[in-house]
Each structure stands twice: as structure tokens, then as C-alpha cells.
């Protein structure tokens, strides 16, 4: 599972998928997750990293990251 090559989120949280022509808007934690995914970091490690940084219940974070990754797949941002 990896982010398509030429997709990147800019600082304001915009993504353009040149393969499909779709544009997306995400929030800052979304930008973070996408850039971590681009570095081929696994979802489990991403959760670890975010858990260190944010004030959040771990189970909730795991669920949210999983839900987010499903959406990324749905939007063809993840291969």
C-alpha cells in the first residue's frame, strides 16, 4: 500500500491526482499521514508516531487512521 508516485499534498492540504484529475482537501494531520505513507512507513508505525504527538485515545486513533486510509484507497490516492 503506497501513495501514488506523483501525488503530494501541499501545505494548505490540497492534493491533485494527475492520473484521475481529482482534487482533494485534507487537514493538517491528513497531510502528515500522507507524507508518512509516501515514505513507505507502515500504518502501525504511523499510529505510533501520531500517538506520541497528539493527545488522543490510542484505539480511537487506530480506527481513525484506518478509516482515513480506506478513504485514500477509495479515492485512488493509495495504490
Amino acid at each position: 500500500m503506497r501513495v501514488r508516485k506523483n501525488i503530494a499534498a501541499n501545505e494548505e492540504g490540497f492534493l491533485f491526482n494527475p492520473t484521475t484529475g481529482d482534487s482533494f482537501s485534507t487537514n493538517s494531520i491528513g497531510v502528515e499521514i500522507i507524507s508518512l505513507l509516501k515514505k513507505d512507513i507502515s500504518l502501525r508505525d504511523i499510529v505510533d508516531e501520531l500517538y506520541e504527538k497528539y493527545d488522543v485515545d490510542r484505539a480511537l486513533l487506530e480506527r481513525d487512521v484506518e478509516d482515513f486510509s480506506l478513504q485514500l484507497k477509495e479515492f485512488s490516492i493509495l495504490e
Partner: peptide, 11 residues
């Protein structure tokens, strides 16, 4: 350019 579209959509 797509940036213009992003700009109006986002900001």
C-alpha cells in the same frame, strides 16, 4: 492552473 482552483476552493 489547478492552483487557482485549489486556492478558491480552499481559501
Amino acid at each position: 492552473d489547478i492552483n487557482e482552483f485549489h486556492k478558491i476552493s480552499g481559501s
